[in-house]
C-alpha cells in the first residue's frame, strides 16, 4: 500500500430519516471513493437502522436512499461494520438488514457479503485502528 493511502472510517450513528446526517454521510462516502483510500463504514447506535431492509419513505415525502448502500461495492467500498449491541438494543438482528454484496477481484470476482456484525469491543478496536474518522 502506498504511503498516501490512509484508513478512513465513516461512523454512522443516526437514524436514516429525521435528520439529514445519514444522507449527507453517504454523499461523502461516494465522493471519497474516488480518492482510493482504505475505506470502512461503521454503523452503531440508531445508525444501524440505515441498513434495514424494506425501507419505505413515501408517507414522509423524503427520498429513500437505502438502495444506494447496495451500490457501494461498485465504488470499491466493501467493508461495512455493524455493532451487534446496537442491533440487540433495538430488537434488530442481522436478518433485518439488507443483503449487501461485493465482487472480490482478488478471489475471481466471487460474491461476498460487505456487512460484518462486530461486538462493541471489536468496534472500539476498529475505530482505534483508523487514520481518519468522520463521524455522522
Amino acid at each position: 500500500m502506498s504511503e498516501d493511502v490512509k484508513k478512513f472510517l465513516y461512523l454512522n450513528r443516526k437514524a436514516p430519516y429525521g435528520t439529514i446526517y445519514a444522507l449527507e454521510a453517504l454523499e461523502v462516502v461516494l465522493i471519497g471513493a474516488a480518492f482510493d483510500q482504505d475505506v470502512s463504514l461503521a454503523f452503531l447506535d440508531d445508525g444501524v437502522f440505515q441498513l434495514t431492509k424494506g425501507q419505505d419513505t413515501k408517507e414522509i415525502g423524503v427520498k429513500n436512499f437505502s438502495p444506494t448502500f447496495r451500490a457501494l461495492g461498485d465504488y470499491e467500498v466493501t467493508k461495512l461494520y455493524v455493532e451487534k449491541e446496537s442491533l440487540d438494543e433495538r430488537g434488530l438482528s442481522a436478518d433485518d438488514l439488507q443483503e449487501i454484496m461485493y465482487e472480490d477481484e482478488d478471489d475471481d470476482w466471487a460474491e461476498k457479503p460487505s456487512i460484518h456484525i462486530v461486538s462493541r469491543a471489536e468496534m472500539a478496536d476498529l475505530i482505534a485502528d483508523q487514520d481518519v474518522v468522520l463521524s455522522f
Binding site: 498516501d4 490512509k6 478512513f8 454523499e27 461523502v28 465522493i31 471519497g32 474516488a34 480518492f35 483510500q37 487514520d131 481518519v132 468522520l134
Partner: peptide, 11 residues
Amino acid sequence: SGLGQLIEMGI
C-alpha cells in the same frame, strides 16, 4: 467547493 476538499484534508 466540493466534498473532495474534505477527503483531501483528511489525507
